[in-house]
Nucleic acid binder design. Structure first.
Length: 939
RNA sequence: GCUCAAGUGGCGGAAUUGGUAGACGCGCUGGAUUCAAAAUCCAGUUCUUUCGGGAGUGUGGGUUCGAUUCCCACCUUGAGUACCA
């Protein structure tokens, strides 16, 4: 008899929900463990089998930690602001909140069927006003903070004002705009309020500035750097252009160094840390100033190789560099101008795609070399980017390939400063293995000492200084969208004013449509109720704006990453209306111990979350400055698409083995019409689409129609989507959970193949039949288990424990199968073996484990038991003996199957002494006994 | 181009410190059961073979008594990143 997984799963899901089995304790004396999933965006398509992979893994881990005596916080929520709901709203006129709610309900139903041990009492939704109230609150905190570089932390703006009032800003080391004027205390005191406000804005951690932004005309919004892939929008793949706009910006660059060093103390994969390091892009070098000949101007360049300063043969500016037109001589003016225009016409995309073509123009002007005092020509070239460093480089053709290419192309000199190298064909770009020549005071030095000497010389000649550059840019925080958090900001004379935190949340206004307005203002520009009354402290009708008491509100909304940058703290105390989470809860839960999610967030979400956490830490609002201790990226589950061959220009379909070189078109067919042997259900296929109804089918010799298979990303348009609901209907949630784990290593991408699930499904049925007879009666005995039974059990305990702790969930599934096969051949009916086995199985297949556990007469949940204790002594296996060396002295290595303590090891060695002696033909002279797996015996 | 990861049967994959390669599952083959099918159970399933064995973890070398595992070079695939000075 097959087990009735539907009834069993529904029964226990209800039981767990009613008993609140998985509610985290608070307060608690137990050790804590916080297991977090990256919360989903609730899309209209619902879940496919790929989505729950990470949730299953984290659920197994959370359940394991509970069995280990931890108080586990394992929450779930929704990242429910976002573009798809808004685009759907634009098309249909439905309010995004409505569709989002529907989608959330659907997600919840689908999630509930899988038996997750989520604590839903602390669910969060980023689009819920009770949640985004605190997102707005944190924004206000950022607005009210500046970054003190001296103490390396954020501080309140009130303290900055105090510094300005008493000392001015000359001696202040703070993160601020490059063009901030220097002023004395007295000057500050004489400024009016507006002037002071403008200065303060240059220091705030979130500030308003006009910048070149990535504007996507199709989406009608700006995008952050990490939302752009190859010059196209990440979502939808629409072209992106540069545009000047006034935007809210996050001063994440202030945290660049801490975001970098923080990586050393967290348990992430090397690859992930590396991509964050690349994104932050620290480069250590020097700023070098070159005086322009016959013009009272300086060109500053950033270089990581100041040691090559005597190899400079020219200077190249980006075409957009502000000094270009000023220093260009009259006879080169025309050429330079046409070059600038030509580059401006080239889109960002062309410029990126085409890195081979070398182009540039000579300005006719020269700079003085800071040491040799010889003139060097100034060129412009589009290989120099305006956005990085100073937009100018000192060209060292012998040490940089791009400079070499440029020099070669325009026939500029290539002086060689590296002794015993040949730089005629290509540059010498190594940072070691050379001695410097032709370089005055650097002659004979290597890279390390030359770097030190040259920076000293630059500084004493006032021609430059050591400097560290970061690639990390400040993050644009405004979006011209409707479905996001409104900014708690209004404008007085064009200057931003914060709304007091007491009046949060600021809710989204009603709009008639969700499109940008005709004149290009964001969708909130359509709202009629969207002005701030400073007397009544409420949102009022726009018609009331009088610029005395009633002012216009900000029209932009916050980006998608705002709500997800801090949600993990909210789970700790999700219902709190007075704080984003109380201190007691936060000092207990501290940080996320295990975070599981996709690698697509490697540079976006994970970087912004770390930034906000560090900021909140600086203000003493949270107890940790890194949010996620251990992080695992689960791999994507791919779809196995099915195709049929259609003979070109006909309606004849050929089975895969009948194609035989004929010209065919491949057509996607729904994978649900294909069986495990790749045979197409022809009748279903005919009914699938009208134009296939009368088609002819050429089958193989067995009368089957075989389809072509290919692994692709799972997507609706490829008809390869498999829904978890179908799988739950057919095989049950326990089968789905185990099969997803069984598919392969968690972090690896792997194809889904529904046919394979029969393996785990059969396993669960086998387990059921082993202990439940045809009359639905329990078949267990309370007799002493045999040594064999115990060995199988403890082998499984050891393996499953090691697997879970090492996140190798796939091999545990095999372990369970092996165990049940062995129990079956051993006819193991022992209750003493079954009970611990069920506890062991419960993280993977909680429903069937719970059912059998209760049938054994227990009244409490199997998931609240303790992980079975391992008896390693039961696991000692045949000792293996290997010869180690034959030269004169005989030496053997004895390998034992497990760690054991010293006494057990000595007994074991004595036992195996005979075997060893027989093999070697000698008595051992010395036995080295080390607690551990391998010992040496010397003869 | 650079960085990282990975290449093992027909397929997904296992081998956790260098120690019986291919666990476990899918698929396939044969058998039992059945009027038949499904389901279930049993046996087999890397290749090759003169049935002794031989070869075998992308390719070619190296270290070792012993290498899927460590080292070097190369090839292929995937991911990330890209005129970053």
């Amino acid at each position: 008899m097959r087990y009735d997984f539907k009834a069993i799963e529904a029964k226990w899901q209800k039981y767990w929900a009613e008993a609140q089995t998985y509610k985290a304790e608070m307060p608690s004396k137990k050790p804590k463990y916080f297991v977090l999933d990256m919360f989903p965006y609730p899309s209209g398509a619902g879940l496919h089998v790929g989505h729950p992979l990470g949730y299953i893994a984290s659920d197994i881990y959370a359940r394991y930690k509970r069995l280990r005596g931890f108080n586990v916080l394992h929450p779930q929520g929704y990242d429910s602001f976002g573009l798809p709901a808004e685009q759907y709203a634009i098309e249909t006129g439905q309010h995004p909140a409505t569709t989002t709610d529907q989608n959330i309900q659907r997600y919840r139903q689908q999630l509930d069927r899988l038996g997750f041990s989520f604590d839903w009492s602390c669910e969060v939704k980023t689009s819920d006003p009770s949640y985004f109230k605190w997102t707005q609150w944190i924004f206000l905190k950022l607005f009210d903070s500046w970054y003190d570089k001296e103490h390396d932390k954020a501080r309140p703006v009130s303290e900055l004002i105090e510094v300005f009032r008493t000392q001015g800003n000359a001696a202040l080391s703070a993160a601020c705009d490059e063009k901030t004027p220097v002023f004395k205390a007295q000057q500050w005191q004489q400024m009016d309020q507006d002037q002071q406000a403008d200065i303060l804005l240059k220091y705030r951690l979130t500030y308003l500035a006009e910048t070149e932004v990535n504007w996507c005309p199709y989406l009608g919004t700006v995008l952050a750097n990490d939302e752009i892939v190859n010059g196209l929008s990440e979502r939808g793949g629409h072209p992106v252009v540069r545009k000047k706009m006034t935007q809210w910006i996050m001063r994440i660059s202030a945290y660049a160094q801490r975001l970098l060093t923080g990586l050393d103390h967290i348990d992430w994969t090397f690859a992930l840390k590396e991509s964050q390091r690349n994104w932050i892009g620290k480069s250590v070098g020097a700023l070098v100033h070159f005086e322009v000949k016959d013009l009272n101007r300086k060109i500053s360049v950033f270089t990581t190789r100041p040691d090559t300063i005597f190899g400079v043969s020219f200077v190249t500016l980006a075409p957009e560099h502000p000094l270009v037109l000023e220093l260009t001589t009259s006879e080169h003016r025309e050429e330079i101008q046409s070059y600038i225009q030509a580059t401006a016409r080239r889109s960002e995309r062309d410029r990126m795609a085409d890195v081979k073509t070398i182009s540039g123009a000579f300005t006719g002007a020269y700079v003085w070399h800071p040491f040799t005092k010889k003139p060097l020509p100034i060129w412009i070239g589009d290989y120099v980017l305006a956005g990085y460093g100073t937009g100018a480089v000192m060209a060292v053709p012998c040490g940089d390939q791009r400079d070499h290419d440029f020099a070669h192309f325009f026939d500029l000199p290539i002086p060689n400063i590296f002794k015993d190298t040949n730089v005629d064909q290509e540059a010498f770009t190594e940072k070691s293995g050379f001695i410097i020549q032709n370089s005055d005071f650097l002659n004979g030095l290597d890279y390390v000492s030359a770097m030190k000497v040259v920076i000293e010389q630059l500084e004493s000649a006032a021609a430059g200084q050591g400097q560290t550059n970061f690639r990390l840019r400040d993050a644009v925080f405004s979006r011209q969208r409707f479905w996001g958090e409104p900014f708690p900001m209004y404008y007085v004379n064009g200057r931003p004013q914060p709304i007091s935190p007491d009046h949060l949340p600021i809710r989204l206004p009603h709009v008639d449509q969700y499109l940008p307005t005709e004149d290009g203002a964001p969708p909130l520009g359509r709202a009629t109720q969207w002005a701030w009354d400073t007397e009544r402290n409420s949102v009022v009708d726009n018609a009331n704006v009088d610029h005395k008491k009633v002012f216009p509100l900000e029209l932009n909304t916050m980006p998608g990453w705002a709500g997800s940058a801090w949600y993990f703290f909210r789970y700790m105390d999700a219902q709190n209306e007075k704080e984003f989470a109380n201190q007691e809860a936060m000092s207990y839960w501290k940080q996320v111990d295990l975070y599981i999610g996709g690698s697509e967030h490697a540079t976006g979400h994970l970087l912004y979350s770390r930034f906000w956490t560090k900021f909140l830490f600086d203000l003493g609002l949270v107890p940790v400055d890194e949010p996620f201790n251990k992080l695992i990226n689960q791999g994507m589950i791919l779809g196995t698409s099915a195709f049929v061959h259609r003979l070109e220009g006909t309606s004849t379909f050929l089975s895969n083995d009948k194609v035989d070189g004929q010209k065919t078109q491949l057509i996607h067919v729904d994978v649900n019409m294909v069986d495990a042997s790749n045979h197409l259900n022809i009748n279903q296929f005919k009914g699938w689409r009208k134009d296939f109804a009368d088609a002819d089918f050429v089958t193989n010799d067995q009368g089957h129609f075989v389809v072509e298979r290919e692994v692709e990303k799972m997507s609706k348009s490829k008809y390869n989507v498999v829904s978890p609901d179908e799988i739950c209907d057919q095989y049950g949630a326990d089968s789905l959970r185990m099969y997803e784990m069984f598919l392969g290593p968690l972090e690896q991408a792997k194809p889904w193949n529904t046919a394979g699930i029969s393996g785990v499904y059969n396993f669960l049925n086998k387990l059921w039949r082993l202990y439940i007879d045809d009359q639905n009666r329990l078949k267990v005995e309370a007799s002493e288990p045999s040594a064999e039974n115990l060995k199988t059990l403890h082998k499984s305990i050891k393996k499953v424990q090691d697997d879970i702790e090492g996140f190798s969930f796939n091999t545990s599934v095999s372990t369970f199968m092996i165990a049940v096969n062995e129990f079956s051949t051993q006819s193991c009916q022992s209750k003493q073996v079954l009970e611990p086995f069920l506890i062991l199985l419960s993280p993977y297949a909680p429903h069937i484990a719970e059912e059998l556990w209760h049938r054994l007469g227990h009244s409490t949940s199997v998931t609240s038991q303790s992980f079975p204790e391992l008896n390693e002594a039961l696991l000692v296996e045949q000792t293996k003996v290997y010869p180690v060396s034959f030269n004169g002295k005989m030496r053997f290595t004895l390998e034992l199957s497990l760690d054991m303590d010293k006494a057990a090891l000595e007994t074991h060695v004595l036992k195996h002494d005979q075997t060893v002696s027989q093999l070697a033909g000698h008595k051992p002279k010395k036995v080295i006994v080390v607690p551990g797996k391998i010992i040496n015996i010397v003869y």
